[in-house]
């Protein structure tokens, strides 16, 4: 009963959010809010996607940039080869991201903790090197892209991308919430606490880890796909920038990983602070802010914002209540 009511509230919230985003694209004339908002939405979706593996399952993935970049370049390659529409680019990126996720999932067979994290960093470097030498998509020099004409009801491409990214956020949050409330969520939590004990209690740990990696990877790559059209440009060192990994991780941890709302809050807080500082001071200060906030939270609120708000989530996040 309680669960049912929660679901109604959740989907009502989602509907209000999407309607608000859509009306904003119709009413607001200035394009800047959409430029900035797009980035914040992108980070919300990335942080939520990251937390499915990094938070629920406890496998800290440093390869968010690999998935993001694969998304970007899947879109670029597909667009250049066939002129496929944005939706197809995103769907293709999700499929490739899922395959990559499967590969990363296999790494969890043998690697745990810091070793797994290092392997994911290596993965990003390998893929980036490959793309740098791939002439078709511009190689190391990057590639310019001409946006196709925008579709109604939007009057600018950026506004449309803003709406598209909002939908990706909804999909990511919907999936994360579903996992959290399902049997799978409990299984992931169990294997995060103790993999052997989880196995011996009947949890198919390898299968759950593979599924978590694939879902997380598909979402990250899907989120990356529209970035090429957003910038009208793509190059390997920005598409595979380590900042994506650090941001997704920091936002999740600052928000708290025990509940899907944590990464959302963390990404809104950090993302908007960064956007604000980029305008008022300089874009270089972003990373500094990220670092300082991460340090403050690790020391002051190790279970993130939701740990501060709701003490009972401190337990779920793996700490003392």
């Amino acid at each position: 009963m309680m669960k049912h009511r929660n679901s109604i509230a959740f989907w009502a919230g989602v509907a209000i959010f999407l309607v608000a985003v859509l009306s904003m694209t119709q009413i607001v004339r200035n394009e800047y809010p959409f430029f900035a908002g797009y980035v914040i939405l992108q980070f919300i979706a990335l942080a939520v996607a990251w937390s499915i593996l990094g938070g629920y399952a406890g496998y800290v993935n440093f390869g968010t940039n690999a998935f993001f970049g694969v998304g970007v370049y899947t879109a670029v390659a597909l667009f250049k080869a066939t002129g496929a529409p944005l939706v197809v680019q995103i769907a293709a990126a999700a499929v490739i991201g899922m395959l990559l996720g499967f590969g990363v999932g296999l790494l969890t067979l043998r690697m745990r903790g810091i070793f797994f994290s290092i392997a994911t960093i290596a993965l990003a470097i390998i893929i980036e090197t490959f793309v740098m030498n791939w002439r078709f998509v511009g190689g190391a020099a990057g590639i310019q892209l001409q946006r196709p004409p925008v579709t109604a009801p939007f009057d600018s491409y950026v506004k449309m991308l803003f709406f598209v990214q909002a939908i990706l956020v909804v999909i990511a949050v919907g999936i994360a919430r579903y996992i959290q409330n399902s049997r799978m969520g409990r299984g992931l939590q169990a294997l995060r606490d103790d993999e052997l004990a989880a196995e011996c209690t009947g949890v198919p740990t390898l299968k759950l880890k593979l599924v978590a990696c694939m879902i997380s990877g598909a979402l990250m790559s899907a989120v990356g796909a529209p970035a090429a059209m957003y910038l009208q440009y793509a190059d390997p060192s920005s598409a595979f920038n380590l900042t994506y990994s650090v941001s997704a991780l920091a936002m999740s941890l600052i928000g708290g990983t025990a509940h899907w709302i944590g990464p959302v809050l963390g990404a809104i807080l950090l993302g908007s602070t960064q956007q604000f500082l980029a305008v008022t001071i300089s874009s270089e200060i972003n990373v500094l802010v990220l670092g300082i906030m991460l340090v403050l939270f690790v020391v002051g609120a190790p279970k993130g914002i939701i740990g501060l708000l709701r003490p009972r989530y401190r337990l779920r996040a793996g700490g003392k209540p």
Partner: peptide, 28 residues
């Protein structure tokens, strides 16, 4: 086949009841 461990290995982020729910969710 179920077992306990020589050094207890509880699921630390869960309550006692939730620890049992894992087995009920997955094994039965």
């Amino acid at each position: 086949i179920a077992r306990s461990f020589q050094i207890p290995r509880p699921f630390k982020s869960m309550t006692v009841l939730e620890n049992l729910m894992v087995g009920l969710d997955f094994a039965t």
